[in-house]
Design a protein around this nucleic acid. Structure first.
Lengths: 337, 337
DNA sequence: TTGAAAGCGCTAACAC
DNA sequence: GTGTTAGCGCTTTCAA
């Protein structure tokens, strides 16, 4: 391990002088600077960032927690966050909670013990409040992404879940559908609640009666049997369309439907929140409310860095990003009776 | 910031005793242990891992470098790596080189300065040798993923690029194709070279003449105009099939073809290396050589941890994971002529 | 323009 | 069982 002392000795200066050269601080004569740099080169010196962080009480490391690393929404978001972090001289540590509170808790412990300067936090759900409070108690700045957590005041970057959901459902209504099912996320997640609210709102505005038999709560990543699909299909008055609360759910639902011989969109229309990237999907099929995933990450990171670099006491800001209705083949006009 | 001294004072013991309680080392009376733990709880103490790492000369942090965070192959690999790291008590730091040597270089600097205990390294290409040697000079253990780098001896987890390519091309040959184009990755990447070699081998075995006009080098992420598609189509004897060196290339090629009015597979068959996950793609269309991405990550991590925990001098191991030919609609029998 | 001393929070090594 | 001392590699503070 090469230390500044090694450099100091060889360059015939004090450790302090070496430190100053490394950090470009203080006044140093050109000759000593050159000599020191020369030795650093030769020894291939790399500063020990732990030692530095220990004294400076800052790590220049930020942390990003997402709930599903396989979901393109989050990987795109991660890119946005990383790009912005890099540009500002921060490193980014990723974590993946898998929508699991226990994993999230572990992650917070890690963030605390590694002394990250701040956290971009996409909460698993309302139960994350406890974890966020741990960060608050430690004065670790954070920005909440995608989902609000009741009781937590902080900077936010959110989507327009309610609005987006309403528009998706209105799209279905415009196509003539009246029996529209909703496959929601868990109700302890704000986006799931809001998408549900948007769904209800659209129905109400159109004077379409609500039928609780058409609503099913399942987790955003739930691939658990999909028995509810049977329930839907065998209902007294089965749905002609399904609104899925996110992209993965929609895909899983369509698969389940197909297995049961139900065609989309001929027999049943399906729409959902969140798109897949075009580099991944050849023939986009789903009608979706597309969210600007990259901006979730880059704007969130922006807020976080501003918060860290000064605006400690400033009032929390909330950015709400609109989604875009993208109509494709998975939804079609209701035909026959 | 709560330190062990705060705990020590309140619990009326020495810092050492607190340290022993935290680490579960040495002999401590039940009463003191209880007292210390109690105080730790009350103060919400979290150990400072930087301070610990500084003295222990180990960080319990590992690093994973991938070349394209948007590619499902790598995100799946990342999951495998993360799961295994976690299970072994390590944290994982992610990095994304974007197939860019400069970014890769920055990343290595970061790894060095954060003193990661080891690195899982998916190199951008042959030019990564320099960066890997930096790690070697610093005695940072690493395992190379997916791509070999000439001149670097290390543990590897690789795919069977040559074999897989050969089988893809043989599949096309079996369908009657004779004019088969190859759209390769950059030739400074081992997998691209091997896939090219497999392509040549299949042609030779089938006594099909090689035509250099049918081969085009482009980067794995190249979405740069795709002028070469025009070249292919306007060739004296245009191809009836295309072998793309990876999944993203295949999609991009198909898009370019469609824009030019060429249908797949009716007018042209397309096959490629690497699949997309089923949670992402509704109707898998591409005929692919599917690699076990998760295992790339989990096995690589396994090797890395073993290397760190003892097998420092052991001979490098090389694991080659087979790929699976998955035939779908993008390839079809040659008709007409 | 340069250096000496002290300390960031923790643990290894040794005493008692 | 428990405590003392020293030091991990760096920067802050103060002095020269």
């Amino acid at each position: 391990m090469v230390t500044i002392y090694d450099i100091a000795k060889l360059a015939n200066v004090s450790a302090m002088t070496v430190s100053r050269v490394i950090n470009n601080t203080g006044r140093i004569s050109e000759s000593t600077r050159a000599r020191v740099k020369q030795v650093m080169q030769e020894l291939n010196y790399v500063p020990n960032s732990m030692a530095r962080s220990l004294v400076k009480q800052e790590t220049k490391m930020l942390s990003l927690l997402i709930t599903d690393i396989t979901n393109p929404f989050y990987t795109t978001l991660a890119r946005g966050a990383e790009d912005t972090a890099m540009r500002n001289g921060y490193k980014l540590l990723f974590g993946n909670s898998d929508e699991d509170y226990a994993k999230e808790r572990d992650y917070v412990d890690m963030v605390l013990s590694t002394r990250a300067d701040g956290v971009l936090f996409a909460p698993a759900g309302d139960g994350s409040a406890e974890h966020l409070r741990m960060l608050q108690r430690r004065n670790v700045p954070f920005v909440i992404l995608d989902r609000e957590v009741p009781g937590i005041e902080a900077d936010h970057v959110l989507g327009d879940s309610r609005e987006g959901a309403r528009r998706l459902v209105e799209h279905l209504l415009a196509l003539g559908h009246r029996r529209i099912a909703m496959v929601g996320g868990r109700q302890d997640v704000s986006t799931a609640r809001l998408r549900y609210a948007g769904y209800l709102e659209a129905l109400k505005l159109a004077d379409v009666p609500f039928d609780s038999a058409l609503v099913h709560d399942v987790g955003y990543t739930a691939v658990e049997g999909f028995a509810f699909v049977d329930a839907l299909l065998s209902a007294e008055a089965p749905p002609t369309a399904v609104f899925a609360a996110n992209n993965f759910l929609a895909l899983a639902v369509i698969r389940a439907l197909r297995e049961r011989g139900v065609r989309v969109p001929e027999d049943l229309s399906v729409v959902c929140f969140d798109d897949f990237g075009e580099s991944i999907v050849l023939d986009p099929f789903l009608t979706v409310a597309r969210q600007p995933a990259y901006e979730f990450g880059s704007l969130g990171m922006q807020l976080l860095i501003e918060r860290i670099q000064g605006a400690a006491g400033a009032a929390p800001r909330k950015i709400v990003l609109p989604s875009e209705l993208v109509v494709r083949q998975s939804s079609s006009a209701l035909t026959g009776v």
